[in-house]
Design a protein around this nucleic acid. Sequence first.
DNA 1: CCACAAACAGTCAAGCCTGTCTTTTTCTCC
DNA 2: GGAGAAAAAGACAGGCTTGACTGTTTGTGG
Lengths: 219, 219
Amino acid sequence: MTVTQRTNRVPQEERTRAMRARLLEACVEVLAERGWAGTSTTVVSQRAGVSRGAQLHHFPSKSDLVVAAVEHLTQARRAELSAAVAALGEGRSTGAVLRMLADLFTGPVFTAALELWVAARADDALREVVAPFERHLGRETHKLAVELLGADESRPGVRELVQATLDLVRGLGLAATLGDDTARRARILDQWALTLDAALDAAPATPAAPAPTPDLQES
Amino acid sequence: MTVTQRTNRVPQEERTRAMRARLLEACVEVLAERGWAGTSTTVVSQRAGVSRGAQLHHFPSKSDLVVAAVEHLTQARRAELSAAVAALGEGRSTGAVLRMLADLFTGPVFTAALELWVAARADDALREVVAPFERHLGRETHKLAVELLGADESRPGVRELVQATLDLVRGLGLAATLGDDTARRARILDQWALTLDAALDAAPATPAAPAPTPDLQES
DNA sequence: CCACAAACAGTCAAGCCTGTCTTTTTCTCC
DNA sequence: GGAGAAAAAGACAGGCTTGACTGTTTGTGG
C-alpha cells in the first residue's frame, strides 16, 4: 500500500472504472432516449464525452458494451427499487405500493430496460444475456412485492395475484410509452388496489374449482 | 363493364393492390422476426419477392412503407380479434375469454405491433401514426372485452377492472417475448379469472372509500 | 397500331455503423 | 529519469441502408 508517487493522486484503476461507468451510463441514457435502433457506439461515446478510441479500448466490440450495460442497468434498477422502498417508509398501503411500482415501471430506467427487452427478442446473443438478469431481478421484485403487500404466499392463488400485479404494472409501463397515461393509470391502480386487498386478506379466493374449463393443452 | 381487351384478364389495379399487400405483409413478418432494427427496406422487398425498384415505386420512402404497414397491421389485429371471438362460440367463461386474449397478445401479430410500439417511442413521426391507430383498436378491444366478460360498466370500478385486465395481458405478452412463459401465464390467468369474476358480479367493489391514501399528486 | 404513361427492374452515390489499425499520450515500475 | 506497458485518440476500410436515378417492360387510350 506504500504508494510512492505524489503527482497523480488518482490511481488510474479508479479512472478506468469511472470511464467505464460513464460509458455504461451514457449507453443506458441513449437507450432510453433514442431506442435500441438509435443506440450506436458513436453516439454513446460522444454522449459519454469519451473518444471512440478509448471506448473501443474498454469495450472492444459493441456486444461487450451492451452486455456490460445490461448488467449495469440491472444494478441501477435494483438500486432504484431499494430507494423507492426506503422512500415508502412505513405507511405501506396497497395503493402506495402499487403507485410506487408503477412509477418505477414508467421511468427512464425501465424504458431503457424495455428497449433491451424487446431488442433481445430478435437477437439470440442478447437474449442469452438479458434473460438471466431479468429473471433474477424479477424474482427479487416479486419477493419484495410479497413483503410490501403483506401477502401470505402459502395461501393458494396469492402468489399468482402478486405475479399478476407485477405483470400489470409492466403492461401499464408499456402503455405509458405512447402518450401520457397518468390519469388513466392512477384510476386503474386504485381499483386494482381495492380488488387486490379484497382478494388477498379476505377469502382464499375460492379454493374449490381451480379450472372451470377442461380444454387446456398445457399440464 | 365492357372491357375490350382479352389478353390481360387481370386489371393491373388489382395487381398493384396485390403487390402492395405482399409488401405490407412482408413488412409485418420481418418486423415480427427480426425486430424494428432488423427491418430494412431491402429485406422487406426480398421477403416479398418484389424488386427494389417496384417497392420504391409503390412506397417512395421507408416512412411511406411503415405508415402503410401500421394501418395494415391494425387491420390484421382487428381481424384476428374477430376470428378469435368467433372461435370462442357461446361458451364464454371468463377463463376462456382471458386465455383467448392472452393468446392474441402472445402471437406474432402482437409481436410486430410491439416492435412498432416501442420503436414509436423514440420516433416522433412514427408515434404520430401509431398512437391514433392504437387508441382506436384499444377502444374496440375494451368494448369487446366488456361484452365478452358480461361486465356492467355502470358499476363503479368495473371499467377500470376491464382496463386492468387488458393491461395485464399486455404485460403478459411482453413477458412472453423473453423465454417461454406458458405455464406461468396459465396459472396467473386462471387465478385472475377467479378474482375477476368475484370482483365483477359479486359486490360493486366497495363503493365507499375510493382512495384510502390522501397523498396523491394527480387530481 | 402507335403513343404515352404507369409499373417494374436494377445500378449508383452518399451516409452511417462497426471494428481494425497506427500513432500519441500517460502512467508505472525500476 | 527512462523503458515499457497501458490508455487514449483518431484515421481508415468494409459492409449495410436509403433513396435518387436511368433504363426496360407492360398496359391503356386514341
